[in-house]
Design a protein around this nucleic acid. Sequence first.
DNA 1: TGTTTTTATGACTACGGGTCATAATAAAGC
DNA 2: GCTTTATTATGACCCGTAGTCATAAAAACA
Lengths: 226, 226
Amino acid sequence: MTVSQKKGFVIRIGRKEREKRQRRESIIDAAEEIILERGFDAATMDEIAEQSEVSKGTLYLYFENKTALYLAICERGSQKLNDRFGEVLTTDRSGLEMIRALGEVYLTFVREMPLYFQAFSHYEAIQDEEFLKENPIAKQCKEHAKQSLTYIVRCLQVGMQDGSIDDSYDPKELALLVWSCSRGVVQMTQLCNRKHDYALIDDMDVDLNALIPLLLKVLEKGMKGE
Amino acid sequence: MTVSQKKGFVIRIGRKEREKRQRRESIIDAAEEIILERGFDAATMDEIAEQSEVSKGTLYLYFENKTALYLAICERGSQKLNDRFGEVLTTDRSGLEMIRALGEVYLTFVREMPLYFQAFSHYEAIQDEEFLKENPIAKQCKEHAKQSLTYIVRCLQVGMQDGSIDDSYDPKELALLVWSCSRGVVQMTQLCNRKHDYALIDDMDVDLNALIPLLLKVLEKGMKGE
DNA sequence: TGTTTTTATGACTACGGGTCATAATAAAGC
DNA sequence: GCTTTATTATGACCCGTAGTCATAAAAACA
């Protein structure tokens, strides 16, 4: 543990750390599989333990409770989404075009990995504020969310610079708005797709796939600079 | 039971029906109180039974399970919101103005009765499709949602008639969009208000109260006819 | 009043989240 | 190597809560 200890020892500590993280990840993998099969609520810790080839007790060695484990899934998801958002920022486009790209990235993400989207909803449904305030994984999730929002702000700022977006808006407010609306629309889409008999669409015959392009169209017109 | 039976009997049946409904309502009342105190997840059926001055067994005579009871709360909420939406339609305003009014009604509703808003989220989180498909209360909820959406469609149609809204849009699609966005924004607002340390606002200093007006502003500009 | 039907009850069961005494394994000291 | 100490793993167990059911009370009826 102390600095005076020989190199070999330090290396071995490194390996242990690595193995520990690996096992943690494999538990999250297992949890994801089980949740995909059974759903968030129906999934049990016993099932997850079995799937991850670990005893129940060990599970609780890595995650203080079920919520913490689910938060970890959330954290993974927000990390992934964040990375994809970041990539958009590296491309050379107008602000408005980047906003559209972010929207498409978001939609693709949710389509490809609906589990993470569900996990986000789960996270938001957590009532216990104390837990959220203390838990380090929750803090990570927050960090990622903040980061994502910042990406949107940046795109809007670029758009205001290049004239593709009306610069009389407050970019931060507008970013929050874009974010909220996208979430709302995607949520609705998911909802309608999942239970295919969901009231709103039944005899309404609206094409859900048209909803996101429509959002972009309306938002763009609403945000466009003169 | 048969038609030949004397009046007194029929009247007594009526009274029993009435009492049964009343008790059902009082159970829902109790559930709402407990949930307000403890939250949806922490609330137990025993607590609710005690609060409604009924045994646990009786509770299950009126609601097949906890989810059904929660659905009943949802049904109540959607009924109330629906009524308020309906009132807006009776006023004499331009389509765009009515849309704004609906937005305000919605926001007021959520502010006054956050419990119902939470109940809606709960409803949407239910994974068991079979249950939702069979349950009559769920069907009612759906009916209300459909009705609300129709109100929005009507307002948009009026707006397209009076020229306040661009009539090249499909009113149904646009209604779904307006609805989704509003939900998204309100959800975000609720989220940020609840856990006051929610990542997005912390050091962003965005005024949440400005978010809904901003939504209306952007939507209006985006939907406006030339 | 006696009989049947409806409604109410709370002890009980099943099940899942979470714990903890104990065991296995690995590291350190000699 | 062998012993001692520290770390990590285990699953039997505890406890709270959703949901059940045999029994009782009440109401309707004859």
